[in-house]
Design a protein around this nucleic acid. Sequence first.
DNA 1: GCAACATTTCAATAATAGTTGTAATATTGC
DNA 2: GCAATATTACAACTATTATTGAAATGTTGC
Lengths: 123, 123
Amino acid sequence: MDKLTATTVFESLSSGVRLDVFRLLVKKGLDGMVAGEIATTLDVPPTNMSFHLKAMTQARLLSVEQEGRYQRYRANIALMLDTIAYLTEECCSGNPQQCIDMRAASACSPSVLPLISTNSTKT
Amino acid sequence: MDKLTATTVFESLSSGVRLDVFRLLVKKGLDGMVAGEIATTLDVPPTNMSFHLKAMTQARLLSVEQEGRYQRYRANIALMLDTIAYLTEECCSGNPQQCIDMRAASACSPSVLPLISTNSTKT
DNA sequence: GCAACATTTCAATAATAGTTGTAATATTGC
DNA sequence: GCAATATTACAACTATTATTGAAATGTTGC
């Protein structure tokens, strides 16, 4: 993960429209959605939606697959997880207790936590 | 977590300077750093650094504490975790296998994963 | 081939964000 | 109180991003 990739990912999620798109596609999972359906669901003009979908695809936050005359978009959750990992690299300089303390204040619902750790069965 | 909070957090991390600041402060943990030290370390003019630190503090991504004539900044990891949780709410509409599949492609180093799941000992 | 549809490109405009130096504010040690 | 230091506020300027409608591209079913 390089800095440019990370800033591009965050830039992608810094607009209300694009954040809505990503969350919608995360919800849809592997099914994804076609461009027009996304635009209609979020009530955004097609040209504007196309602009944002293109930006997100270039940031690799979305993948796109042609499906006849439609373009089907899907969320790239893996890239997002990599970006989060980059963000917290060398957290607390290897001081685990500090890390736990810093996180203690989180109002985070537990729902996502098991998801994030699904592929880390090892210690 | 509301949308504005989330976009503001991501906007905070979408600039190279601010991303460097956050990663630096994550590394420093509870010790944090004072403003001038951050500016010197990252080789950014003080006025510009002050601009970015203010933005990040308003986004609540950093906390600040006055320490004599210094301002000590610390990373708010809890808010970042909450934001990630917001991002992946209703992931795959409760279809766990899909979630696992979507994450399978991640090149994420395992280092951060135990950290993120530290407070989720329960299933 | 052609009409209907999905999506993107383009160009113009509007809006927002980033950088810089200078000046202001606040704190320290004498 | 005063000089030195840390940080921020301000104002001017530059650069980037967002939005829109009209036109272009590409695909389908007949």
